[in-house]
Write a protein that binds this DNA or RNA. Structure first.
Length: 556
RNA sequence: GCGCGCGUAGUUCAGGGGAUAGAACGUCGGCUUGCGGAGCCGAAGGUCGGAGGUUCGAUUCCUCCCGCGCGCACCA
Protein backbone atom coordinates (compact mmCIF):
# COMPACT_ATOMS: atom_id res chain seq x y z
CA UNK A 1 0.00 0.00 0.00
CA UNK A 2 1.42 3.33 -0.93
CA UNK A 3 -0.16 6.11 1.03
CA UNK A 4 0.09 9.33 -0.84
CA UNK A 5 1.45 12.43 0.68
CA UNK A 6 0.01 12.54 4.12
CA UNK A 7 3.27 12.98 5.93
CA UNK A 8 3.26 15.33 8.88
CA UNK A 9 -0.46 15.49 8.64
CA UNK A 10 -3.17 14.25 10.91
CA UNK A 11 -4.93 13.27 7.71
CA UNK A 12 -2.48 10.45 7.36
CA UNK A 13 -3.74 8.56 10.39
CA UNK A 14 -7.26 8.90 9.14
CA UNK A 15 -6.38 7.73 5.66
CA UNK A 16 -4.35 4.78 6.92
CA UNK A 17 -7.21 3.71 9.18
CA UNK A 18 -9.70 3.99 6.38
CA UNK A 19 -7.48 2.10 3.97
CA UNK A 20 -7.02 -0.84 6.34
CA UNK A 21 -10.76 -1.11 6.79
CA UNK A 22 -11.21 -1.20 3.04
CA UNK A 23 -8.40 -3.73 2.67
CA UNK A 24 -10.02 -6.01 5.23
CA UNK A 25 -13.43 -5.84 3.61
CA UNK A 26 -11.86 -6.52 0.23
CA UNK A 27 -10.02 -9.54 1.60
CA UNK A 28 -13.08 -10.88 3.35
CA UNK A 29 -15.05 -10.55 0.13
CA UNK A 30 -12.38 -12.40 -1.88
CA UNK A 31 -11.89 -9.33 -4.04
CA UNK A 32 -9.17 -9.67 -6.69
CA UNK A 33 -7.51 -6.53 -5.37
CA UNK A 34 -8.01 -3.58 -3.16
CA UNK A 35 -8.54 -0.07 -4.45
CA UNK A 36 -6.52 2.89 -3.21
CA UNK A 37 -9.07 5.09 -1.57
CA UNK A 38 -9.05 8.84 -1.43
CA UNK A 39 -9.94 11.32 1.22
CA UNK A 40 -11.13 14.69 0.02
CA UNK A 41 -12.86 17.86 1.06
CA UNK A 42 -16.50 17.67 -0.01
CA UNK A 43 -17.71 20.56 -2.14
CA UNK A 44 -20.51 21.27 0.26
CA UNK A 45 -19.33 22.04 3.75
CA UNK A 46 -22.65 20.71 5.03
CA UNK A 47 -21.61 17.25 3.84
CA UNK A 48 -18.95 16.99 6.49
CA UNK A 49 -15.30 17.70 7.09
CA UNK A 50 -13.96 15.07 4.77
CA UNK A 51 -15.46 12.54 2.41
CA UNK A 52 -14.23 9.36 0.84
CA UNK A 53 -15.06 7.57 -2.37
CA UNK A 54 -13.98 4.26 -0.78
CA UNK A 55 -17.30 2.51 -1.29
CA UNK A 56 -17.59 3.66 -4.89
CA UNK A 57 -14.15 2.24 -5.56
CA UNK A 58 -14.65 -0.97 -3.60
CA UNK A 59 -18.17 -1.89 -4.73
CA UNK A 60 -17.21 -2.83 -8.32
CA UNK A 61 -14.42 -5.20 -7.27
CA UNK A 62 -16.78 -6.84 -4.79
CA UNK A 63 -19.67 -6.73 -7.28
CA UNK A 64 -21.86 -5.32 -4.60
CA UNK A 65 -24.18 -2.39 -4.18
CA UNK A 66 -22.18 0.76 -3.41
CA UNK A 67 -24.59 2.05 -0.75
CA UNK A 68 -24.46 -1.26 1.06
CA UNK A 69 -20.66 -1.35 0.97
CA UNK A 70 -20.60 2.28 2.09
CA UNK A 71 -22.70 1.40 5.12
CA UNK A 72 -20.40 -1.45 6.03
CA UNK A 73 -17.34 0.80 5.82
CA UNK A 74 -19.11 3.61 7.64
CA UNK A 75 -19.99 1.35 10.56
CA UNK A 76 -16.32 0.68 11.16
CA UNK A 77 -14.92 4.11 10.29
CA UNK A 78 -16.88 5.56 13.16
CA UNK A 79 -14.52 3.84 15.57
CA UNK A 80 -11.39 5.51 14.18
CA UNK A 81 -9.79 8.08 16.47
CA UNK A 82 -10.85 11.61 15.75
CA UNK A 83 -14.02 10.61 13.94
CA UNK A 84 -17.10 12.17 15.46
CA UNK A 85 -19.83 11.20 13.01
CA UNK A 86 -20.16 9.25 9.79
CA UNK A 87 -22.93 9.10 7.25
CA UNK A 88 -23.55 7.63 3.86
CA UNK A 89 -24.84 9.91 1.16
CA UNK A 90 -25.59 10.12 -2.54
CA UNK A 91 -24.48 7.16 -4.63
CA UNK A 92 -22.24 5.88 -1.82
CA UNK A 93 -20.11 8.69 -0.49
CA UNK A 94 -19.02 8.40 3.11
CA UNK A 95 -18.96 11.71 4.87
CA UNK A 96 -16.88 12.16 7.98
CA UNK A 97 -17.21 14.71 10.69
CA UNK A 98 -14.19 15.05 12.93
CA UNK A 99 -14.07 15.99 16.57
CA UNK A 100 -12.33 18.99 18.07
CA UNK A 101 -9.39 16.96 19.31
CA UNK A 102 -8.55 16.00 15.75
CA UNK A 103 -8.49 19.65 14.74
CA UNK A 104 -6.34 20.67 17.67
CA UNK A 105 -3.87 17.88 17.02
CA UNK A 106 -3.66 18.87 13.40
CA UNK A 107 -2.69 22.40 14.36
CA UNK A 108 -0.04 21.11 16.75
CA UNK A 109 1.38 18.77 14.12
CA UNK A 110 1.69 21.54 11.55
CA UNK A 111 3.27 23.82 14.11
CA UNK A 112 5.75 21.22 15.23
CA UNK A 113 6.74 20.37 11.69
CA UNK A 114 7.37 24.04 10.97
CA UNK A 115 9.29 24.51 7.73
CA UNK A 116 9.27 20.75 7.28
CA UNK A 117 5.50 20.59 7.10
CA UNK A 118 4.57 18.47 4.11
CA UNK A 119 8.19 17.58 3.42
CA UNK A 120 8.85 14.31 1.72
CA UNK A 121 5.24 14.20 0.73
CA UNK A 122 5.81 12.54 -2.61
CA UNK A 123 4.45 9.04 -2.80
CA UNK A 124 7.52 7.98 -4.72
CA UNK A 125 9.22 6.34 -1.79
CA UNK A 126 12.26 6.51 -3.99
CA UNK A 127 13.51 10.04 -4.00
CA UNK A 128 15.01 10.73 -7.40
CA UNK A 129 18.05 12.75 -8.33
CA UNK A 130 16.52 15.22 -10.74
CA UNK A 131 18.30 17.50 -13.15
CA UNK A 132 15.94 20.26 -14.12
CA UNK A 133 16.75 22.45 -17.09
CA UNK A 134 14.73 25.57 -17.79
CA UNK A 135 14.83 29.00 -19.39
CA UNK A 136 17.92 28.26 -21.53
CA UNK A 137 17.03 31.37 -23.52
CA UNK A 138 19.04 32.28 -26.58
CA UNK A 139 21.84 34.62 -25.49
CA UNK A 140 21.50 36.80 -28.55
CA UNK A 141 19.10 39.17 -26.86
CA UNK A 142 17.71 40.10 -23.47
CA UNK A 143 15.40 37.89 -21.47
CA UNK A 144 11.93 38.27 -22.96
CA UNK A 145 8.78 38.30 -20.84
CA UNK A 146 7.91 34.75 -21.84
CA UNK A 147 11.16 33.61 -20.27
CA UNK A 148 9.98 35.05 -16.99
CA UNK A 149 7.26 32.43 -17.05
CA UNK A 150 9.82 29.71 -17.63
CA UNK A 151 11.96 31.11 -14.83
CA UNK A 152 9.07 31.34 -12.38
CA UNK A 153 7.79 27.91 -13.30
CA UNK A 154 11.12 26.10 -13.32
CA UNK A 155 12.30 27.59 -10.08
CA UNK A 156 9.00 26.93 -8.32
CA UNK A 157 8.97 23.38 -9.65
CA UNK A 158 12.48 22.85 -8.29
CA UNK A 159 11.36 24.10 -4.89
CA UNK A 160 8.26 21.93 -4.92
CA UNK A 161 10.17 18.83 -6.00
CA UNK A 162 12.76 19.41 -3.29
CA UNK A 163 10.07 19.81 -0.68
CA UNK A 164 8.49 16.62 -1.94
CA UNK A 165 11.70 14.82 -1.17
CA UNK A 166 13.69 14.82 -4.38
CA UNK A 167 17.23 15.92 -4.91
CA UNK A 168 17.08 18.61 -7.56
CA UNK A 169 19.75 20.50 -9.46
CA UNK A 170 18.85 23.27 -11.86
CA UNK A 171 20.59 24.15 -15.11
CA UNK A 172 20.52 26.81 -17.78
CA UNK A 173 21.88 25.70 -21.15
CA UNK A 174 23.68 28.51 -22.90
CA UNK A 175 23.54 28.35 -26.70
CA UNK A 176 26.78 30.20 -27.15
CA UNK A 177 27.96 28.31 -30.22
CA UNK A 178 27.08 28.12 -33.87
CA UNK A 179 26.01 30.42 -36.59
CA UNK A 180 23.60 32.48 -34.53
CA UNK A 181 26.47 33.78 -32.44
CA UNK A 182 28.38 34.84 -35.55
CA UNK A 183 25.23 36.45 -36.89
CA UNK A 184 24.87 38.30 -33.64
CA UNK A 185 28.46 39.56 -33.98
CA UNK A 186 27.85 40.63 -37.58
CA UNK A 187 24.65 42.37 -36.51
CA UNK A 188 26.53 44.28 -33.82
CA UNK A 189 29.09 45.38 -36.37
CA UNK A 190 26.43 46.40 -38.86
CA UNK A 191 24.45 48.36 -36.29
CA UNK A 192 27.56 50.20 -35.14
CA UNK A 193 28.84 51.08 -38.58
CA UNK A 194 25.58 51.77 -40.35
CA UNK A 195 25.91 48.67 -42.47
CA UNK A 196 23.24 46.21 -43.49
CA UNK A 197 22.14 43.72 -40.84
CA UNK A 198 22.75 40.29 -42.37
CA UNK A 199 19.96 37.99 -43.46
CA UNK A 200 18.58 36.32 -40.36
CA UNK A 201 20.48 38.75 -38.15
CA UNK A 202 19.33 40.78 -35.19
CA UNK A 203 17.76 44.15 -35.74
CA UNK A 204 16.54 45.20 -32.34
CA UNK A 205 17.34 48.50 -30.72
CA UNK A 206 19.21 46.64 -28.03
CA UNK A 207 21.77 45.58 -30.65
CA UNK A 208 22.64 49.20 -31.36
CA UNK A 209 22.86 49.99 -27.65
CA UNK A 210 25.04 47.00 -27.00
CA UNK A 211 27.32 47.87 -29.93
CA UNK A 212 27.85 51.31 -28.46
CA UNK A 213 28.48 49.84 -25.05
CA UNK A 214 31.09 47.47 -26.47
CA UNK A 215 32.73 50.28 -28.41
CA UNK A 216 32.35 48.51 -31.73
CA UNK A 217 34.27 50.02 -34.67
CA UNK A 218 34.58 49.09 -38.32
CA UNK A 219 37.76 47.23 -37.45
CA UNK A 220 36.11 45.00 -34.84
CA UNK A 221 36.19 41.27 -35.44
CA UNK A 222 32.60 40.02 -35.80
CA UNK A 223 33.42 36.59 -34.41
CA UNK A 224 34.90 38.12 -31.30
CA UNK A 225 31.98 40.53 -31.11
CA UNK A 226 29.59 37.61 -31.13
CA UNK A 227 31.27 36.14 -28.07
CA UNK A 228 31.41 39.47 -26.29
CA UNK A 229 27.78 40.14 -27.12
CA UNK A 230 26.68 36.77 -25.83
CA UNK A 231 28.61 37.27 -22.62
CA UNK A 232 26.93 40.62 -22.14
CA UNK A 233 23.47 39.16 -22.78
CA UNK A 234 24.06 36.32 -20.34
CA UNK A 235 25.20 38.83 -17.77
CA UNK A 236 22.00 40.81 -18.27
CA UNK A 237 19.88 37.68 -18.05
CA UNK A 238 21.52 36.69 -14.80
CA UNK A 239 20.81 40.12 -13.45
CA UNK A 240 17.10 39.82 -14.20
CA UNK A 241 16.94 36.23 -12.95
CA UNK A 242 18.57 37.47 -9.79
CA UNK A 243 15.87 40.08 -9.37
CA UNK A 244 13.35 37.26 -9.65
CA UNK A 245 15.34 35.29 -7.06
CA UNK A 246 15.94 32.54 -9.58
CA UNK A 247 19.36 30.97 -9.20
CA UNK A 248 20.75 28.11 -11.23
CA UNK A 249 23.14 25.50 -9.94
CA UNK A 250 24.87 25.49 -13.30
CA UNK A 251 25.10 27.42 -16.53
CA UNK A 252 26.20 24.88 -19.10
CA UNK A 253 27.91 26.37 -22.10
CA UNK A 254 27.28 24.69 -25.44
CA UNK A 255 30.62 26.00 -26.65
CA UNK A 256 32.33 24.30 -23.72
CA UNK A 257 30.82 20.96 -24.75
CA UNK A 258 32.33 21.44 -28.21
CA UNK A 259 35.70 22.48 -26.84
CA UNK A 260 35.84 19.53 -24.48
CA UNK A 261 35.34 17.23 -27.44
CA UNK A 262 32.12 15.90 -25.93
CA UNK A 263 30.07 16.62 -29.05
CA UNK A 264 32.36 14.72 -31.40
CA UNK A 265 32.70 11.95 -28.83
CA UNK A 266 28.92 11.67 -28.68
CA UNK A 267 28.63 11.31 -32.44
CA UNK A 268 31.34 8.66 -32.46
CA UNK A 269 29.68 6.80 -29.64
CA UNK A 270 26.43 6.65 -31.59
CA UNK A 271 28.23 5.65 -34.78
CA UNK A 272 30.08 2.87 -32.95
CA UNK A 273 26.75 1.64 -31.59
CA UNK A 274 25.45 1.41 -35.16
CA UNK A 275 22.81 4.06 -34.55
CA UNK A 276 23.86 6.30 -37.43
CA UNK A 277 24.16 6.11 -41.16
CA UNK A 278 25.78 8.16 -43.87
CA UNK A 279 23.87 10.25 -46.35
CA UNK A 280 25.68 12.40 -48.90
CA UNK A 281 28.58 12.75 -46.49
CA UNK A 282 26.41 13.75 -43.54
CA UNK A 283 25.96 11.62 -40.43
CA UNK A 284 22.35 10.88 -39.58
CA UNK A 285 21.00 9.44 -36.32
CA UNK A 286 18.22 6.89 -36.66
CA UNK A 287 15.80 8.56 -34.28
CA UNK A 288 12.88 7.04 -36.19
CA UNK A 289 13.78 3.77 -34.48
CA UNK A 290 12.41 5.39 -31.35
CA UNK A 291 9.34 6.96 -32.82
CA UNK A 292 10.62 10.23 -34.25
CA UNK A 293 9.03 11.47 -37.50
CA UNK A 294 12.32 11.46 -39.34
CA UNK A 295 15.95 10.71 -38.79
CA UNK A 296 18.06 13.64 -37.65
CA UNK A 297 21.42 14.90 -38.84
CA UNK A 298 24.12 15.05 -36.20
CA UNK A 299 26.99 16.03 -38.49
CA UNK A 300 26.66 17.99 -41.69
CA UNK A 301 28.31 17.06 -44.97
CA UNK A 302 30.86 19.79 -44.26
CA UNK A 303 31.90 17.95 -41.12
CA UNK A 304 30.47 20.42 -38.63
CA UNK A 305 28.29 18.89 -35.89
CA UNK A 306 24.69 20.10 -35.77
CA UNK A 307 23.02 21.79 -32.84
CA UNK A 308 21.31 18.50 -32.10
CA UNK A 309 24.69 16.83 -31.69
CA UNK A 310 25.45 19.17 -28.82
CA UNK A 311 22.08 18.29 -27.27
CA UNK A 312 23.09 14.66 -27.43
CA UNK A 313 26.41 15.32 -25.74
CA UNK A 314 24.59 17.26 -23.06
CA UNK A 315 22.16 14.38 -22.42
CA UNK A 316 25.06 12.00 -21.96
CA UNK A 317 26.76 14.48 -19.67
CA UNK A 318 23.64 14.90 -17.58
CA UNK A 319 23.12 11.18 -17.14
CA UNK A 320 26.78 10.80 -16.25
CA UNK A 321 26.22 13.26 -13.42
CA UNK A 322 22.88 11.95 -12.11
CA UNK A 323 23.53 8.27 -12.69
CA UNK A 324 21.16 6.09 -14.69
CA UNK A 325 18.56 6.29 -11.93
CA UNK A 326 18.43 10.03 -12.43
CA UNK A 327 15.69 11.93 -14.12
CA UNK A 328 16.22 14.71 -16.61
CA UNK A 329 13.43 17.23 -16.82
CA UNK A 330 13.41 19.77 -19.63
CA UNK A 331 11.07 22.74 -19.56
CA UNK A 332 10.68 23.79 -23.17
CA UNK A 333 8.54 26.31 -24.98
CA UNK A 334 5.53 25.26 -27.01
CA UNK A 335 7.51 25.87 -30.18
CA UNK A 336 9.82 23.04 -29.13
CA UNK A 337 7.30 20.23 -28.86
CA UNK A 338 8.85 18.69 -31.96
CA UNK A 339 11.95 18.02 -29.83
CA UNK A 340 10.33 15.50 -27.58
CA UNK A 341 10.72 12.56 -29.93
CA UNK A 342 14.26 13.40 -30.97
CA UNK A 343 15.54 14.00 -27.45
CA UNK A 344 14.00 10.81 -26.18
CA UNK A 345 15.32 9.03 -29.25
CA UNK A 346 18.79 10.38 -28.59
CA UNK A 347 18.63 9.21 -24.98
CA UNK A 348 17.72 5.70 -26.08
CA UNK A 349 20.30 5.60 -28.83
CA UNK A 350 22.87 6.46 -26.16
CA UNK A 351 21.60 3.54 -24.10
CA UNK A 352 19.67 5.49 -21.49
CA UNK A 353 16.10 4.90 -20.36
CA UNK A 354 13.89 7.33 -22.25
CA UNK A 355 11.39 7.25 -19.40
CA UNK A 356 13.97 9.08 -17.35
CA UNK A 357 14.00 11.97 -19.78
CA UNK A 358 10.91 14.04 -19.28
CA UNK A 359 9.85 17.09 -21.21
CA UNK A 360 7.42 19.67 -19.91
CA UNK A 361 6.01 21.86 -22.63
CA UNK A 362 5.26 25.38 -21.52
CA UNK A 363 2.57 27.12 -23.50
CA UNK A 364 3.00 30.63 -24.80
CA UNK A 365 2.63 33.88 -22.99
CA UNK A 366 0.67 36.41 -24.99
CA UNK A 367 1.02 40.02 -24.06
CA UNK A 368 -1.52 42.62 -24.96
CA UNK A 369 -1.25 46.35 -24.70
CA UNK A 370 -3.84 48.91 -25.74
CA UNK A 371 -6.02 46.02 -26.82
CA UNK A 372 -3.44 44.73 -29.25
CA UNK A 373 -1.40 41.60 -29.05
CA UNK A 374 2.30 42.28 -28.91
CA UNK A 375 4.53 40.50 -31.37
CA UNK A 376 7.34 38.60 -29.79
CA UNK A 377 10.26 38.41 -32.16
CA UNK A 378 13.77 38.43 -30.81
CA UNK A 379 15.31 38.74 -34.25
CA UNK A 380 13.30 41.82 -35.12
CA UNK A 381 13.82 43.21 -31.66
CA UNK A 382 10.10 43.56 -31.14
CA UNK A 383 9.39 42.26 -27.66
CA UNK A 384 8.66 43.01 -24.04
CA UNK A 385 11.49 42.11 -21.72
CA UNK A 386 11.52 40.51 -18.31
CA UNK A 387 13.25 43.64 -17.10
CA UNK A 388 10.32 45.77 -18.21
CA UNK A 389 7.88 43.44 -16.50
CA UNK A 390 9.89 43.52 -13.28
CA UNK A 391 10.15 47.29 -13.40
CA UNK A 392 6.42 47.58 -13.82
CA UNK A 393 5.06 45.17 -11.24
CA UNK A 394 7.94 43.78 -9.19
CA UNK A 395 9.33 40.30 -8.67
CA UNK A 396 6.69 38.91 -6.31
CA UNK A 397 3.82 39.96 -8.55
CA UNK A 398 5.57 38.66 -11.67
CA UNK A 399 6.22 35.29 -10.11
CA UNK A 400 2.77 34.94 -8.64
CA UNK A 401 1.16 36.03 -11.89
CA UNK A 402 3.23 33.64 -13.98
CA UNK A 403 2.30 30.75 -11.72
CA UNK A 404 -1.42 31.32 -11.81
CA UNK A 405 -2.00 28.99 -14.72
CA UNK A 406 -1.16 25.45 -15.61
CA UNK A 407 1.93 25.18 -17.81
CA UNK A 408 -0.09 23.62 -20.60
CA UNK A 409 -2.38 26.60 -20.75
CA UNK A 410 -1.58 29.74 -22.65
CA UNK A 411 -1.17 32.72 -20.40
CA UNK A 412 -2.44 36.11 -21.33
CA UNK A 413 -1.08 39.22 -19.70
CA UNK A 414 -2.64 42.58 -20.33
CA UNK A 415 0.24 44.97 -19.77
CA UNK A 416 -2.03 47.91 -19.09
CA UNK A 417 -3.84 46.02 -16.39
CA UNK A 418 -0.63 44.50 -15.09
CA UNK A 419 0.77 47.93 -14.36
CA UNK A 420 -2.41 49.79 -13.47
CA UNK A 421 -3.66 47.07 -11.21
CA UNK A 422 -0.41 45.94 -9.77
CA UNK A 423 -1.85 46.99 -6.40
CA UNK A 424 -4.70 44.58 -6.93
CA UNK A 425 -2.49 41.68 -7.80
CA UNK A 426 -3.71 38.68 -5.84
CA UNK A 427 -0.23 38.21 -4.46
CA UNK A 428 -0.88 41.12 -2.10
CA UNK A 429 -4.02 39.47 -0.83
CA UNK A 430 -2.00 36.44 0.17
CA UNK A 431 0.91 38.41 1.56
CA UNK A 432 -1.51 40.55 3.51
CA UNK A 433 -3.02 37.46 5.11
CA UNK A 434 0.47 36.46 6.21
CA UNK A 435 1.25 39.93 7.52
CA UNK A 436 -2.03 39.95 9.41
CA UNK A 437 -1.17 36.72 11.19
CA UNK A 438 2.14 38.27 12.18
CA UNK A 439 0.39 41.39 13.32
CA UNK A 440 -1.98 39.48 15.57
CA UNK A 441 0.89 37.73 17.29
CA UNK A 442 2.62 41.08 17.83
CA UNK A 443 -0.54 42.57 19.28
CA UNK A 444 -1.09 39.67 21.64
CA UNK A 445 2.49 39.85 22.85
CA UNK A 446 2.37 43.62 23.24
CA UNK A 447 -0.72 43.26 25.38
CA UNK A 448 1.00 40.53 27.35
CA UNK A 449 -1.84 38.12 26.67
CA UNK A 450 0.19 35.22 25.33
CA UNK A 451 0.41 33.37 28.63
CA UNK A 452 -2.82 31.36 28.57
CA UNK A 453 -2.94 27.58 28.49
CA UNK A 454 -4.75 26.41 25.40
CA UNK A 455 -5.26 22.97 26.91
CA UNK A 456 -7.58 24.60 29.44
CA UNK A 457 -9.79 25.97 26.71
CA UNK A 458 -13.18 24.31 26.59
CA UNK A 459 -14.85 26.50 24.01
CA UNK A 460 -15.98 24.57 20.95
CA UNK A 461 -14.20 25.32 17.71
CA UNK A 462 -15.84 27.83 15.42
CA UNK A 463 -16.58 26.71 11.86
CA UNK A 464 -14.13 29.29 10.60
CA UNK A 465 -11.42 27.81 12.78
CA UNK A 466 -12.21 24.35 11.50
CA UNK A 467 -12.19 25.52 7.92
CA UNK A 468 -8.74 26.97 8.39
CA UNK A 469 -7.43 23.79 10.00
CA UNK A 470 -8.81 21.63 7.22
CA UNK A 471 -7.02 23.78 4.69
CA UNK A 472 -3.79 23.47 6.62
CA UNK A 473 -4.24 19.71 6.80
CA UNK A 474 -4.46 19.59 3.03
CA UNK A 475 -1.12 21.27 2.47
CA UNK A 476 0.98 18.08 2.30
CA UNK A 477 -1.44 16.69 -0.27
CA UNK A 478 -1.16 19.80 -2.38
CA UNK A 479 2.62 19.66 -2.31
CA UNK A 480 2.60 15.99 -3.32
CA UNK A 481 0.15 16.66 -6.10
CA UNK A 482 2.02 19.69 -7.37
CA UNK A 483 5.24 17.69 -7.44
CA UNK A 484 3.83 14.65 -9.17
CA UNK A 485 1.96 16.61 -11.77
CA UNK A 486 4.75 19.16 -12.21
CA UNK A 487 2.10 21.69 -11.36
CA UNK A 488 3.35 24.41 -9.02
CA UNK A 489 0.33 26.52 -9.91
CA UNK A 490 -1.62 24.35 -7.51
CA UNK A 491 0.24 26.05 -4.70
CA UNK A 492 -0.70 29.42 -6.12
CA UNK A 493 -4.36 28.47 -5.85
CA UNK A 494 -3.82 26.85 -2.49
CA UNK A 495 -2.26 30.01 -1.09
CA UNK A 496 -5.24 32.07 -2.24
CA UNK A 497 -7.70 29.61 -0.73
CA UNK A 498 -5.79 29.67 2.53
CA UNK A 499 -5.73 33.46 2.52
CA UNK A 500 -9.46 33.48 1.93
CA UNK A 501 -9.96 31.16 4.90
CA UNK A 502 -7.82 33.53 6.94
CA UNK A 503 -10.11 36.42 6.08
CA UNK A 504 -13.13 34.48 7.28
CA UNK A 505 -11.37 33.39 10.44
CA UNK A 506 -10.39 36.97 11.12
CA UNK A 507 -13.96 38.07 10.63
CA UNK A 508 -15.47 35.44 12.90
CA UNK A 509 -12.91 34.71 15.57
CA UNK A 510 -11.31 37.32 17.74
CA UNK A 511 -8.01 36.23 19.14
CA UNK A 512 -7.69 38.74 21.96
CA UNK A 513 -9.53 41.49 23.72
CA UNK A 514 -12.85 41.94 25.46
CA UNK A 515 -14.47 38.76 26.58
CA UNK A 516 -11.77 36.52 25.14
CA UNK A 517 -10.44 34.22 27.84
CA UNK A 518 -6.66 33.78 28.00
CA UNK A 519 -7.04 30.07 27.17
CA UNK A 520 -8.98 30.91 24.03
CA UNK A 521 -6.40 33.50 23.05
CA UNK A 522 -3.72 30.84 23.46
CA UNK A 523 -5.62 28.30 21.41
CA UNK A 524 -6.31 30.73 18.59
CA UNK A 525 -2.76 32.00 18.68
CA UNK A 526 -1.64 28.44 17.99
CA UNK A 527 -3.83 28.41 14.94
CA UNK A 528 -2.58 31.84 13.89
CA UNK A 529 1.00 30.58 14.11
CA UNK A 530 0.29 27.38 12.21
CA UNK A 531 -1.51 29.36 9.53
CA UNK A 532 1.29 31.87 9.25
CA UNK A 533 3.84 29.11 8.95
CA UNK A 534 1.87 27.23 6.30
CA UNK A 535 1.22 30.39 4.33
CA UNK A 536 4.90 31.27 4.43
CA UNK A 537 5.78 27.78 3.22
CA UNK A 538 3.33 27.92 0.33
CA UNK A 539 4.68 31.29 -0.73
CA UNK A 540 8.23 30.10 -0.39
CA UNK A 541 7.56 27.16 -2.69
CA UNK A 542 6.34 29.69 -5.24
CA UNK A 543 9.44 31.79 -4.66
CA UNK A 544 7.37 34.67 -3.36
CA UNK A 545 8.19 36.63 -0.22
CA UNK A 546 6.11 36.43 2.96
CA UNK A 547 6.47 39.84 4.62
CA UNK A 548 5.79 40.34 8.33
CA UNK A 549 4.02 43.58 7.57
CA UNK A 550 2.73 45.32 4.47
CA UNK A 551 3.18 48.92 3.54
CA UNK A 552 -0.06 50.58 4.41
CA UNK A 553 -1.88 51.35 1.27
CA UNK A 554 -2.48 55.07 0.83
CA UNK A 555 -5.98 56.40 0.64
CA UNK A 556 -6.72 57.20 -2.96
C1' G B 1 -1.07 17.44 -45.11
C1' C B 2 1.22 15.31 -40.55
C1' G B 3 2.27 16.07 -35.30
C1' C B 4 1.70 18.39 -30.25
C1' G B 5 -1.34 21.51 -27.04
C1' C B 6 -5.83 24.01 -25.92
C1' G B 7 -11.65 25.00 -26.43
C1' U B 8 -15.33 25.35 -19.01
C1' A B 9 -19.51 32.05 -16.68
C1' G B 10 -19.22 38.64 -20.13
C1' U B 11 -13.45 38.16 -19.63
C1' U B 12 -8.97 35.50 -17.85
C1' C B 13 -8.86 30.68 -16.23
C1' A B 14 -8.97 26.53 -11.87
C1' G B 15 -10.94 21.63 -11.49
C1' G B 16 -11.52 16.69 -13.03
C1' G B 17 -14.97 9.19 -13.73
C1' G B 18 -19.19 10.32 -9.22
C1' A B 19 -23.49 14.37 -4.57
C1' U B 20 -26.09 21.38 -6.81
C1' A B 21 -19.11 22.35 -12.09
C1' G B 22 -15.58 26.73 -8.94
C1' A B 23 -12.28 31.39 -8.40
C1' A B 24 -10.69 36.07 -9.84
C1' C B 25 -11.93 40.34 -12.62
C1' G B 26 -16.31 42.84 -14.52
C1' U B 27 -21.85 43.92 -13.41
C1' C B 28 -25.78 44.64 -9.61
C1' G B 29 -27.20 44.91 -4.22
C1' G B 30 -25.67 44.96 0.96
C1' C B 31 -21.79 45.47 5.39
C1' U B 32 -18.65 51.68 10.03
C1' U B 33 -18.28 50.68 16.93
C1' G B 34 -13.41 46.03 17.68
C1' C B 35 -6.72 42.08 16.56
C1' G B 36 -4.82 46.43 9.71
C1' G B 37 -11.45 46.97 5.21
C1' A B 38 -5.47 45.14 0.12
C1' G B 39 -11.72 42.87 3.39
C1' C B 40 -16.68 40.25 4.09
C1' C B 41 -21.91 38.74 2.55
C1' G B 42 -25.45 38.18 -1.40
C1' A B 43 -27.37 38.28 -6.71
C1' A B 44 -27.19 37.70 -11.87
C1' G B 45 -24.30 34.95 -15.33
C1' G B 46 -22.72 27.77 -17.86
C1' U B 47 -26.54 22.68 -22.96
C1' C B 48 -17.97 22.37 -19.60
C1' G B 49 -16.89 23.57 -28.64
C1' G B 50 -20.11 19.56 -31.58
C1' A B 51 -21.35 14.30 -32.51
C1' G B 52 -20.70 9.35 -31.27
C1' G B 53 -18.49 5.49 -27.86
C1' U B 54 -16.87 3.04 -22.99
C1' U B 55 -19.29 3.11 -17.92
C1' C B 56 -24.15 1.92 -12.97
C1' G B 57 -22.38 7.15 -13.72
C1' A B 58 -18.59 11.41 -18.53
C1' U B 59 -17.45 18.20 -18.19
C1' U B 60 -13.30 14.48 -16.97
C1' C B 61 -11.42 8.54 -20.60
C1' C B 62 -11.60 6.94 -26.28
C1' U B 63 -12.80 8.15 -31.64
C1' C B 64 -14.26 11.59 -35.30
C1' C B 65 -15.46 16.66 -36.59
C1' C B 66 -15.04 22.04 -35.94
C1' G B 67 -12.23 26.26 -33.98
C1' C B 68 -7.60 28.54 -32.00
C1' G B 69 -2.23 28.28 -31.04
C1' C B 70 2.50 26.09 -32.13
C1' G B 71 5.75 23.03 -34.80
C1' C B 72 7.36 19.93 -39.14
C1' A B 73 16.17 22.15 -41.48
C1' C B 74 22.70 19.14 -43.00
C1' C B 75 19.12 27.00 -38.35
C1' A B 76 20.19 27.58 -33.46
Amino acid sequence: MSSTGFSNSALRGLHDGLQSIVDEIARAGDAPGTPRVELERPREEAHGDFATNAALMLAPVLRRNPREVAQEIADRVGALPGVDAVDVAGPGFINLRLDDSWFLETVDAALEAGADFGRGASNAATSEPILLEFVSANPTGPLVAASARHAAYGDALARVLRHAGHEVRTEFYVNDAGRQVDLFGESLLARATGGQVPEGGYEGEYVRDLAAELGVTAESDPVELGQLGVAAMIGGMREQLDRMHVHFDRFQSEKALHEAGAVVAGIEKLAAAGQTFDEDGATILRTTTWGDDRDRAVRRANGIPTYFAADIAYIDDKFARTGEAGRLIYVLGADHHGYIARLKGAAQALGHDADHLEIVIMQMVTLTEAGEQKKMSKRRGDFVTTQELLDRIGADAVRFWMLERSHDQQLEIDLDKASEQSDDNPVFYVQYAHARMCSIRRKVEDADLAGGDSAECSEALHDSEKRLVKRIAEFPLVVADAAERRAPHRLHHYSRDLASDVAKFYRDCRVMGDGIAPELTARRLHLVDATRSTLALALDLLGVGAPDRMERRDEA
